[in-house]
Every structure is written in C-alpha cells, then in structure tokens.
C-alpha cells in the first residue's frame, strides 16, 4: 500500500481521533439505577449503638481499608456531670475490636458515637480539590476519582469531620464511598448490613417511601458541626451536645 504524503497528513489525525474515542469507552452503569432518583444519606441512632465494632470490621472487609486507617469508626464518650464541655473520648483501634468493659457505675454518662463521612451536600473537601478528583455525585455521595487524585491532601485537611486519609499504598485520598458499589445494586452499605441493632440505616431522601421522612418528623435529629453549614447528610438521633 502506497500512501502519498498528502494522504498520510489526512489519515493520521483521523486515526488519532478514532483511537481516542476507543480509549474513552462508555461509562459503566448498573442496570435500572438512575442517579437522578436518589439522594443518599445515613441515619445513626445513638441510643441503639452498643459499640460492638461490627461496622468497622465490615467496612474494612468490604472496602479493603488498610490496617490502621478507617472509613468509619466508633468513639465512646464519657461525659461527667460537672464538665459537659470536656468529654473523655476513646476509640481503641477505631473500635474495631469493641471497647474495654466499664464495670462500676460512676458519675456521668457513657454512649457510643459511630462516625463516618457525612456525605455533605456542600462539602468542604470537594471545594478545595485543585484537580477535580473529588466531587459530590448526582445522587449525593462524596466520591474520589483515584485515577485523577494527586495525593496533595488538601481535602484531608479540609474535612471538618476527619473522615479522609491518604491511602498508604496508593498515595491518593481515600474515604467512605457510602458503599457506592452496593447501593447502586440495591444493597445497603456494609456497615448497615452488619449492624446487629439497627443503629445505622442507609436513607434515600428522594424516596418518598423511605421511613427516614417519618423519622425526621418525629425525632430530635442533629448533624455534626451544623455551624459549618456543610449540608451533612449523616443524621444523628439522640446526639449529645458534648459530641464534637
């Protein structure tokens, strides 16, 4: 096959354009799942949490979370009667293996607070990303595009809830995806699936049949750090004022 210089000059750019569209591919999407029909969040019912650590272990297993890092963790608060503003908080290994037993009743109260990404609608972490690697998806989940992330850790510093970390091997930002690979297939998150007491509930705020709407109407529900106006969608029932 003999090609003239003129033919080559036309063919080469055309081939390049064609090859580019081959590389780009088509987006993968779960069948019957429409992003525009969902707005995900989480309900965390503090009076139901027993601090067993099932959610922390399940999250680590489901999402291959490296040892010593947490996408979700459980804190135990001990608030004494006199000093509301200085609670004693422990979270040994993120609460993965439960908590030390408290045998004697003493002054103050104890309770467990499961923490995770609050899936903020106006998230501070996505606003600081210099390369567009983290974003709020159209169904309300804060995600990280790990093939785009540079690992600059701006987002790790920006998250007011401390929910992000730099993955020690991949060297990119990592965080709770609200088990995006599960919720798009009609499953609940790994932490909700493994919670024995129902202290965690995945909620879909765009689903009119979701019991969350009734729950929000009838309970005193709070989000963490409401003064930061992050639009947090992790709703805490029975949250004590001492929780930070």
């Amino acid at each position: 096959m003999n090609l003239s210089r003129r033919q080559m000059l036309i063919l080469l750019p055309a081939a390049a354009v064609a090859w580019k569209s081959v590389l780009a591919g088509t987006p993968e999407e779960a069948p019957n799942y429409k992003m525009s029909e969902h707005w995900w969040g989480m309900l965390i019912d503090i009076p139901k949490c027993i601090g067993c650590g099932n959610c922390v272990r399940a999250c680590a297993a489901e999402n291959d979370v490296p040892e010593g890092y947490f996408r979700t963790w459980v804190e135990r608060y001990h608030v004494s009667d006199e000093d509301m503003t200085n609670p004693q908080v422990i979270s040994p290994d993120g609460g993965k293996q439960g908590f030390p037993v408290v045998e004697k009743e003493d002054a103050g109260k104890y309770f467990f607070v499961p923490k995770m990404c609050n899936q903020c609608a106006d998230s501070p972490c996505t606003q600081v990303c210099p390369v567009g690697a983290t974003f709020v998806s159209p169904d309300g989940v804060v995600l990280v595009d790990q093939s785009y992330c540079l690992g600059c850790a701006y987002c790790v510093q920006a998250c007011p809830y401390g929910c992000r970390y730099i993955h020690p091997e991949k060297k990119v930002a990592d965080k709770c995806t609200l088990c995006y690979h599960r919720i798009t297939k009609g499953l609940t998150t790994a932490c909700c699936e493994s919670c024995p007491t129902g202290a965690r509930q995945l909620v879909d705020l765009k689903d009119p049949k979701d019991p969350i709407h009734e729950f929000l109407k009838t309970h005193s529900v709070q989000v963490l750090k409401p003064q930061m106006a992050t639009g947090a969608k992790a709703f805490y029932n029975g949250l004590d004022g001492s929780v930070r």
């Binding site: 993968e28 779960a30 399940a58 297993a61 999402n63 998806s137 690979h181 599960r182 499953l187």
Partner: peptide
C-alpha cells in the same frame, strides 16, 4: 469515575 467506583466487588 462514578462507574469505576461502582465496579468495586461486593463482599457482603
């Protein structure tokens, strides 16, 4: 990226 994240294998 949304599709890439949704492709993670399910364990539970």
């Amino acid at each position: 990226a949304i599709g890439d994240i949704a492709a993670h294998p399910v364990k539970f």
